[in-house]
Amino acid sequence: MAQHIQPSPAELKDLQNRELDAICVNESVLKHPWWYNLKYSAWGILFGIVFVKAEIISWFRIQEMFRFESFHMYGVIGTAVVVGLISVLIIKRTKARTIYGEEIHIPNKEFNKGQIYGALIFGLGWAITGACPGPLFAQMGAGFGVVIVTFLSAVAGTYVYGVFRDRLPH
């Protein structure tokens, strides 16, 4: 059973900063060696294979989706949401814990204007590049070398956001 230790003020500040505009932060008191992270790589490998095998990383499939000429991508995303929804319900109902015995916590997302303006900008870019951030990694891995440029531009975009964050409407 995991113990619940209050984080120090410095740790708390670091956590709050990491939580800014992020949907995937969870603090754990457990300290694991680096190779514990390989379980995420393992799932990532399966994920990358799925991305290629179902052609989710294909620029063509994204065009089809936004032109409403194929059900494929709607089927993928819709099924993923339904499976995710049922899983979260089961986890909440059974009060399931992690394999290390920690309580599972899903942070609430606060609304801000970024979910309008930022999301719109991402949507515009998604239709051009045919990729959200996940498929960017997969496109590079699948051998589309020039996507490295797209990827570096995406990192630059994130960086510029970080620089101007305080001056943008939220």
Partner: peptide, 24 residues
Amino acid sequence: FVIGGFMVGFGTRYAGGCTSGHAI
């Protein structure tokens, strides 16, 4: 590549997530 990629990186962070974080 450049403008498209920039919009993906800037937009997702401004939105606080992408297809995986928000949609799924």
